[in-house]
């Protein structure tokens, strides 16, 4: 594993608003969001459904741009980036873990893990080696040739974690990583994330389970598109 602690990447939001246009109606998803995430932190974002957790995560994941306000990630002003620039940032700095794993069913475990490297257009044999290492890290090195459908939920999520780590990202973004798992498997995944955080990876996780949020060192509570309080 490359040492993630060396990668400094802060996340700073100032007066960020996000407004969606839905069928002529304007919906304010995020209002006046101000906060900072330092390198190496482990954040949980909590709140009832509709509070704007996903909108915030999409923003932090560079899948979306704020309607107004400043959002700096790794020293870059997101609002100045175009679609290509956002993709580039996701490719090089971010790793995603989703609630429903989002593995590509047609690809094998190895190919799924290699996917980000594929877009980085790296040398093939090094990619294989890297996929191998990551599979060892998540304990699935005996499943490299399997399809996602042949794995259990917990195994699939571990593949997803390995994939998220493939590009050695500065920040791991997890959207309800244990939402589709039973509590025992969920705990394993959370332990894995905690371990990664201890090795220096910044983790931002959306969850509505308080037990999961306890893994994080800091928690941001949201309500009606605003930051309710920190804990």
């Amino acid at each position: 594993m490359a040492d993630a602690a060396t990668i400094q990447c802060e996340c700073r939001l100032e007066k960020v608003n996000k407004i969606y246009q839905i069928g002529g109606r304007t919906v304010s998803a995020l209002t006046d969001i101000n906060f900072e995430i330092q390198s190496g932190e482990f954040w949980a974002i909590m709140g009832p459904s509709g509070a704007g957790k996903s909108s915030l995560l999409n923003l932090l994941g560079c899948l979306d741009r704020p309607t107004s306000g400043n959002f700096h990630l790794c020293g870059q002003d997101i609002s100045t980036l175009d679609d290509n620039g956002l993709s580039e940032l996701r490719l090089r700095k971010l790793g995603f873990i989703f609630q429903s794993f989002h593995l590509i069913p047609e690809l094998t475990v190895r190919e799924n893990i290699e996917l980000p490297l594929f877009y980085l257009d790296r040398n093939s044999s090094r990619n294989r080696q890297r996929a191998q290492e990551l599979a060892v890290l998540v304990g699935l090195d005996d499943r490299l040739r399997h399809r996602p459908s042949e794995l259990s939920g917990g195994q699939q999520q571990r593949v997803a974690v390995a994939r998220a780590l493939a590009n050695d990202p500065a920040i791991l973004l997890a959207d309800e990583p244990t939402g589709n798992l039973d509590s025992a498997t969920g705990k394993k995944i959370m332990d894995m994330l905690l371990q990664l955080n201890e090795r220096g990876k910044t983790i931002i996780m959306v969850t509505h389970e308080a037990s999961v949020a306890t893994y994080a060192r800091r928690t941001l509570h949201m309500r009606d598109g605003r930051i309710d309080f920190f804990s």
């Binding site: 679609d83 580039e88 490719l91 090089r92 995603f96 989002h102 996917l115 980000p116 877009y119």
Partner: peptide, 16 residues
């Protein structure tokens, strides 16, 4: 569509 979304989230550009 979902596969496209996954690839995009991972960092695939439009040209990819």
């Amino acid at each position: 569509t979902r596969e496209i979304g996954i690839r995009r989230a991972i960092g695939a550009k439009r040209k990819h």
